[in-house]
């Protein structure tokens, strides 16, 4: 790790939710797909995270997630960007290292410009490296297949004007660039699933997810979505701070994709697909509003890029 980054990150205030108190269970929360997440203490006092599935389907999903997380940790054990080590699989739960950190979204609201800039640069460099390592492979079938599997008549999607035409534009964009860098990806590379460790500045990826196409392109798009269209935190002044911090990250990610040979049109189509995948699970009106605004932008951009770059 770069020493100046460590010093910068160490200066960040400690998190407000500090695990404390006696007993094996320190905190409990709900995770994705009905999982229960507990912060527990091992006999030697070490705090660890226990993630327990709610049903058979979520247990199967959790096992795939654990396998992805283990593989990523094995590939990046001492890297600047890693994953918490999966310590045990204890059906229907997995136990992993506890990371004392804040999500990237919270971090960018609290950190100084220098601190934010350092972390964003590291993330861009990481994704650039992932893209460079991936060979080009067929992508169109998997992506169009995912789009076709979405329920565009879902109550949380059907209100979006022109969604049918948008889906057609996405299909055309995928067909215009049928091959993309293909290799392992995170699956939900969002601000929520990137933790910045408080006292080391290391970045930990959590909540790995299945992907319709294993490709870092989808991770870049997911991160870009949060960077270019941040939605959480207070809508007021702290959000403006977040906007400033993440704007540079968004710019960096576009550069990364261009260097990886991904066209702007394909990138916008992946972004739109990402939003359509998220919308059915998004209840918060603020988040929905921001996502729908992004969708309007992307729809207009897709239309423009089709006109300027007609399909061969």
């Amino acid at each position: 790790m770069q020493p100046d980054r460590v010093a910068l990150v160490r200066a960040i205030p400690r998190p407000r939710r500090e695990p404390a108190g006696p007993g094996p269970e320190l905190a409990v929360g709900l995770g994705q797909s009905g999982c229960t997440i507990s912060l527990v203490r091992l006999p030697d006092g070490t705090p660890v995270v226990r993630k327990q599935a709610g049903d058979q389907r979520s247990w199967e999903r959790l096992q795939r997630q654990a396998a992805k997380q283990r593989a990523f940790h094995a590939d990046h054990p001492d890297a600047l960007i890693t994953a918490p080590e999966v310590l045990a699989v204890d059906p229907p739960a997995i136990v992993m290292d506890f990371v004392r950190g804040t999500s990237l979204g919270e971090f960018l609201q609290q950190a100084s410009v220098r601190q934010s800039s350092a972390v964003c640069t590291d993330l861009s460099a990481f994704l650039s490296g992932q893209l460079q390592c991936c060979p080009s492979g067929p992508a169109v079938e998997a992506l169009v297949g995912k789009l076709d599997s979405l329920d565009l008549d879902h109550p949380r999607i059907r209100g979006v004007p022109g969604v049918g035409a948008l889906a057609e534009a996405i299909r055309r964009a995928f067909r215009a660039q049928p091959r993309l860098p293909v290799g392992s990806g995170h699956g939900d590379f969002s601000f929520d699933n990137i933790l910045v460790e408080q006292h080391t500045g290391r970045i930990y990826l959590i909540d790995f997810l299945d992907m319709p196409l294993e490709s870092p392109v989808l991770d870049v798009a997911r991160l870009y979505l949060d960077a270019a269209y941040p939605w959480w935190g207070s809508y007021g002044r702290t959000r403006h701070r977040l906007l400033g911090a993440s704007r540079d990250l968004a710019h960096g990610l576009r550069t990364v994709l261009a260097a990886g040979g991904v066209t702007e049109r394909t990138f916008r189509a992946v972004l739109a697909l990402t939003i359509l995948r998220i919308l059915p699970y998004t209840g918060s009106p603020i988040r929905r509003g921001v996502l729908c605004s992004a969708l309007h932008d992307i729809t207009a951009e897709l239309s423009t890029s089709e006109t300027s770059c007609p399909a061969p």
Partner: peptide
Amino acid sequence: FEAASLVVLARER
């Protein structure tokens, strides 16, 4: 507004 998110959508723009 038929949905609260429409206000956010417009404000974003």
